[in-house]
């Protein structure tokens, strides 16, 4: 990978991470733009995604009993545990590609939804809808893995 080959030209660990993140950010954006151009990705067209989220709620909009969010304990303490990061990583892998990418751009790389949508040429409202779905799905997966010890 090109970032690793160039690592001896960068001093300081956090500076390196920032630099790698910059590269990843553009790789993700490029991938998504290319897929959109080639017609292989339409922002809101993921049907499997809709089902997975609809199943969390009843017809009337209330949480389904088995999908009701539980407490994860002291929030900031979760970040200190290796278990949380294992579950988080597994759940990121389990997310549909477009959901994982937009979540990464927004929450890991800190782009605003305005920036993301401008770069990808989609409406900001679409970004918000995609992020809503990604968060619902990721949250549910992490809760399963975190509370039940099963990240699948």
């Amino acid at each position: 990978m090109s970032a690793i080959e160039k690592n001896d030209s960068f001093a300081g660990r956090s500076g390196y991470e920032t630099w790698v993140f910059g590269i990843l950010k553009y790789k993700i954006l490029d991938t998504m733009r290319a897929q959109k151009r080639q017609g292989r990705w339409q922002p809101l067209a993921d049907e499997n995604d809709d089902e997975a989220i609809d199943r969390q709620f009843q017809q009337n909009g209330r949480w389904q009993q088995e999908a009701r969010p539980q407490s994860w304990g002291e929030p900031e303490a979760a970040f200190e545990t290796e278990r949380f990061w294992q579950v988080f990583d597994a759940c990121m892998i389990a997310l549909p590609d477009s959901a994982a990418r937009i979540f990464s751009l927004r929450e890991l790389m800190g782009l605003s939804t305005e920036e993301i949508c401008r770069e990808l040429g989609i409406k900001e409202n679409n970004c918000w809808v995609m992020l809503h779905r990604a968060r619902l799905r990721l949250r549910a997966c992490i809760e399963r893995g975190w509370l039940e010890g099963d990240a699948s």
């Binding site: 969010p69 994860w72 800190g110």
Partner: peptide, 30 residues
């Protein structure tokens, strides 16, 4: 249930800080 969900969305919003300590915390309107 929604109070828990809100806490968890906020938590997930903060993962980036723990991936990259050099980044400032992003304000929603930024």
């Amino acid at each position: 249930a929604c109070r828990e969900c809100d806490r968890q969305f906020t938590l997930l919003h903060g993962v980036g800080r723990h991936y990259d300590p050099e980044q400032d915390d992003d304000e929603p309107s930024a």
